[in-house]
Nucleic acid binder design. Sequence first.
RNA 1: CGGAGUAUAGCGCAGCCUGGUAGCGCACCUGCUUCGGGAGCAGGGGGUCGAGUGUUCGAAUCACUCUACUCCGACCA
Length: 449
Amino acid sequence: MRLSQYFLPLLKETPKEAEIVSHQLMLRAGMIKQQAAGSYSWLPLGFKVLEKVKRIVEEEQNRAGALELLMPTLQSADLWRESGRYDAYGKEMLRIEDRHEREMLFGPTNEEMITDIFRTYVKSYKDLPLNLYHIQWKFRDEVRPRFGTMRSREFLMKDAYSFDLDRERAVEAYNRMFVAYLRTYHRMGLVAIPMRAETGPIGGDLSHEFIVLADTGESAVFCHADMLKKPIPGVDTDFRGDLTPIVKDWTSLYAATEDMVDMAEYEAAVPPEKRISARGIEVGQTFYFGTKYSEPMKATVTGPDGKEVTVHMGSYGVGVTRVIPAIIEANHDDAGIVWPVSVAPFEAVVINLKVGDLESDAAADDFYLALRSMGIDALYDDRDQPAGAKFAAADLIGVPYQLIVGPRGLKTGEVEIKHRRTGERETLPLGSAIERLKSLIEPERRDKV
RNA sequence: CGGAGUAUAGCGCAGCCUGGUAGCGCACCUGCUUCGGGAGCAGGGGGUCGAGUGUUCGAAUCACUCUACUCCGACCA
């Protein structure tokens, strides 16, 4: 993408409404624009990141055997009356009336609707297990939205729902999602720690919150330091096999949020030098809630013995629009964002330091076209701007590799590769620079883990 | 929902106390010169001062009402 033809409204100054660094940087990098309290437009650069994050979530859900579908944002109140949540949910649920005075709501979550889909079509135990998910906009009328897209009222969430014959098999489904989440966050460059969690209004008795440690996090968390460096299950993980050992390993060390922590238990379980008491951002949550919805909504199948069985369910959420600020909180410096390659809006940026100079333009153009033909998602800063402005922009939007074409290199036929994260620079002949870049980027795409 | 605050050009702000018809920096437009860390010179465009009502000869400025947004606390992917 040529920057001269792109839409990238960068801000030199920090808008005053932004308190935390991820919000400030998302605004300054031209990723989002606030439209109302807790409501944001995603501008091209931000939208590109959103799509990359979505893609990773989808790949890992699919790998774990979940099937993608799409449910509407507006739901009917009657469905929610069946589960009893229409009255229970409270003011966070945005209630709407249509022209026929029918009561509707903007979905804050989809347990009821997915259960309705399930009960309509699934009648036999032979159709289980089943896990359906979608990535759809939700609305929760938060009393106090804040921190940009970290806590917005309208947000994009991946929510998966599992259906099984009994508790034991539902836990197997739970484990599949648990392992998928470990891989999902890892691929985005996040270290997300599963912690025992309260189930809240969704209900149930088995639940984990996936937490990214950050000073700006909204909840206090307590965990064992070794949780931070556990190996991530690889791509060879057999999602049809028994995942219990992996989940057991990941849940063997102490990790709990403030709502669940028992200080005595924590101190007994974790030696002092291994205690991490910090703040964290919740980027996802998994629940097993048995028959909480299937029972009142009559989601049953016929079992092998011919008897009717109420299915056991779980739900699994990833806050897609929340994950992005979480990644930024964990990956930035004084100059701006430092994206992991896997979710970076562009993998590399070609910086032409002397726009208008025939030799410089020709070298930068050729280089950019060569990158594209090699399948590298590159931005090309072809604006007639001073060098400082270009470096500042590249730093701010956090592109992992900066390829500098300037008078210095033109004399020697070389290009400079600057690593955004480390600041390291390497100078290479134009011919070999692309191969070098490819060798840097490919392993970081993390599509294989 | 309780408490506090803000609202003047796209962004950041001054002006308000002590009423007299709106200004600065950045951004934007034109031209020339520049070009290895947010450039220089010259010229230019853009604001019913959040909305309404009132006081006054006159309101960004004073009074009242409303709205939006932000922050601190209780709730949530």
